[in-house]
Amino acid sequence: MSSTLHPHSETSQAAAGGLTVFAAVMMLVLGLVNLFRGIMAIVHDHVFVTTPDYIFKFNLTSWGWIHLLLGLAALMVGVGLFRVSLWARILGVAVAALLMLANFLSIPYYPLWSIVAIALCAFVIWGLCVVRQDDSWT
Rank of each mutant, 00 (worst) to 15 (best):
V43I: 13
M27H: 02
F58K: 08
F123A: 11
D53E: 12
V49F: 08
I55Y: 04
T11S: 13
V21L: 07
V93H: 00
D53F: 12
G92K: 00
A15E: 12
A16R: 01
H44W: 12
L35C: 03
Y109Q: 14
L81M: 15
G80E: 07
V131M: 05
G92H: 03
M100H: 04
V25S: 02
L60Q: 03
L112V: 13
W65Y: 14
R132M: 11
F123G: 12
L120A: 13
A102T: 04
H44V: 14
A102K: 00
G18E: 02
Q13T: 13
S12N: 14
P7D: 11
P52N: 07
S114G: 06
A41F: 08
L75K: 00
M76E: 03
V47M: 12
I42H: 09
P111M: 09
F123C: 10
F48A: 15
W87Y: 11
L70M: 09
A16Y: 02
V84A: 14
N103D: 08
D135H: 12
A16S: 14
L5S: 14
G78Y: 03
P52G: 00
A88D: 12
I125Q: 06
N34L: 06
H44Q: 15
E10K: 12
D53S: 10
V130W: 01
Y110E: 14
G71E: 07
V25M: 04
L75C: 07
S62Y: 01
L69D: 00
T50L: 09
V93S: 07
T11D: 14
L5F: 12
G80K: 10
W65T: 10
R37H: 10
W65H: 01
V124S: 05
T61S: 06
W87Q: 13
I125P: 03
T20C: 05
M26F: 13
W126E: 05
S136V: 11
I118P: 01
G31Y: 01
H6C: 07
A94W: 00
L30W: 04
A88K: 11
F123S: 11
R89I: 11
G18M: 05
D45K: 11
M1P: 08
A102E: 03
A14V: 10
G127Y: 00
L19G: 06
L28E: 00
V116Q: 06
R37F: 09
I55T: 01
V130F: 05
L70Y: 03
V93W: 02
S85F: 05
S12V: 15
D135Y: 08
I55A: 06
L28G: 06
L35V: 01
G92T: 03
V47R: 09
L91K: 04
L86R: 15
G38F: 04
L68C: 02
L112D: 11
L120I: 15
G71R: 03
M76W: 10
I39N: 04
A102N: 01
L99Q: 02
S3P: 13
V33D: 01
V33A: 06
W87L: 14
W113T: 09
M40V: 08
F104N: 03
F123V: 10
Q13F: 11
